[in-house]
C-alpha cells in the first residue's frame, strides 16, 4: 500500500538519507542510487536487527552445546559438537523438584487450557460485539465502558477476589477455573475488537437481514458470523499467543495438576541440583516459545494487525 503511494509521489522516499539535496535538489522522481545517507540507514537498521537477533541466536547455539562446552563461556560460538540431547532432556526428562517429566506435561496442559479458553472467549466476545453494535439495549454502553476500564486494571488488583470467588464455586485451582480466568481477562480486548469490526460493517447488510425477517440469532449466525472470518483470525492469534505466554494466571489459578508450559519452564529453570544445566534450560526456553513464534512467523501480517487492534483499545 505504501509502496504504491511512494511510487506515485516519487520524490518522497530517499528523505533522511539525502538531507543536503532534500533542501536544494529538484523534486520529482529520482533515480535510485547509493548515497552515504542510504548506507547509513541500512547500517543502522542492520545493527539494530543484529541486536534483536542476538538472544535467539545465543539461545539456539547454547541449546545445541553439551555442558562442558557451555562452561567454556564462548557465548557466541557455534557448537563444536552439535548435540540434541539438551532438547530431548528438556522435553521429557528435565527435573522439577522430584518429578523428572520435562516440559511435555506442561505442553499438554497449555493445550488443554488454551483451546477451550480461546474457543469460549471468542464466541462470547463476538456475541458481545454483535449485540453492542446492532442491538444496543439500555445500559449496554455503561457495561461496555466498564469492560474497557477492565482492560487497564492491573491484574493484581483482581487476583484475590477472583481466588475467593472461584473457591466459593469450587473451581479454584482446576482446569475450568483457569479457563474461566482466561475468558474473563480476554473479554475486554476481544469485545472491543469485535465491536470495532462490526461497526465497520455497512448497516445496510444488517437492515437487509432484518427486512428479510431474520431475528437476533439468525442474523448473527447466517449473516454476521460468515463475515467475521478475518477478525476471528486476528482474535485467535491474539488469544492463543496471550494465553500461551501467560505466567501470572498459571501461577495463581492453575493448580498443580494443570501447570501450563511457562510455569513448567519456570520450575525446570529454577530447579538446581549442583550445576545449572544452561543447555537444557535454553532448549526448554525455546520449546516454550515455539508455539507463539510459529504463529508469529506463519501469520505475519495478521499478527501485527492483532497487536495494533489490541493497542488501539486506548
Amino acid at each position: 500500500m505504501t509502496a504504491d503511494t511512494y511510487a506515485a509521489t516519487g520524490a518522497q522516499p530517499a528523505m533522511a538519507g539525502t538531507k543536503a539535496d532534500a533542501a536544494t535538489g529538484p523534486s520529482g522522481p529520482r533515480p535510485k542510487r547509493i548515497s552515504p545517507g542510504r548506507i547509513g540507514i541500512y547500517c543502522f537498521l542492520i545493527i539494530v536487527a543484529a541486536f534483536f537477533c542476538v538472544p535467539l541466536y545465543v539461545m539456539l547455539v547454547t541449546s545445541f552445546k553439551a555442558m562442558p562446552e557451555v562452561r567454556e563461556a564462548h557465548l557466541f560460538n557455534l557448537p563444536r559438537e552439535w548435540t540434541i540431547d539438551p532438547w530431548i532432556k528438556a522435553w521429557n526428562s528435565a527435573c522439577t523438584g522430584r518429578d523428572c517429566t520435562g516440559l511435555a506435561p506442561g505442553f499438554l496442559n497449555s493445550v488443554k487450557i488454551a483451546v477451550p479458553s480461546v474457543f469460549i472467549s471468542i464466541i462470547v466476545a463476538s456475541l458481545n460485539g454483535y449485540a453492542l453494535t446492532f442491538w444496543r439495549y439500555k445500559g449496554a454502553e455503561v457495561l461496555f465502558n466498564l469492560l474497557v476500564f477492565g482492560a487497564f486494571v492491573p491484574y493484581q488488583v483482581l487476583v484475590y477476589p477472583i481466588i475467593i470467588g472461584l473457591r466459593e464455586m469450587h473451581l479454584f485451582a482446576t482446569l475450568p477455573g483457569i479457563i474461566i480466568v482466561h475468558t474473563v481477562f480476554g473479554m475486554p480486548i476481544l469485545t472491543l475488537l469485535f465491536r470495532n469490526y462490526y461497526s465497520s460493517i455497512p448497516l445496510e447488510i444488517f437492515k437487509a437481514a432484518r427486512i428479510d425477517g431474520a431475528g437476533f440469532w439468525q442474523t448473527y449466525f447466517r449473516v454476521m458470523l460468515p463475515l467475521s472470518v478475518p477478525i476471528t483470525t486476528v482474535a485467535v492469534i491474539l488469544q492463543v499467543t496471550g494465553i500461551w505466554n501467560d505466567f501470572l494466571f498459571g501461577l495463581v489459578f492453575a493448580g498443580k495438576d494443570n501447570i501450563p508450559m511457562t510455569l513448567q519452564l519456570n520450575n525446570i529453570v529454577k530447579t538446581t541440583f549442583g550445576t545449572v544445566e544452561y543447555d537444557v534450560n535454553m532448549a526448554a526456553t525455546i520449546l516454550t516459545a515455539l508455539v507463539p513464534l510459529a504463529i508469529y512467523f506463519i501469520s505475519g501480517k495478521w499478527f501485527v494487525r492483532g497487536i495494533a487492534a489490541g493497542a488501539v483499545k486506548g
Binding site: 536487527a49 545465543v58 539461545m59 547454547t62 511457562t262 519452564l265 534450560n281 499478527f303
Partner: peptide, 26 residues
Amino acid sequence: SIFLYPFAMSLYVTGLAWQWILDPNL
C-alpha cells in the same frame, strides 16, 4: 519481522534469554 518477533515471546522467556546472556561467568 526481526524487530517484532520478541513480542511473540513471553516476557518470561525474554527474561530467561537475557539472564543467560548477562550471566557474569558464562
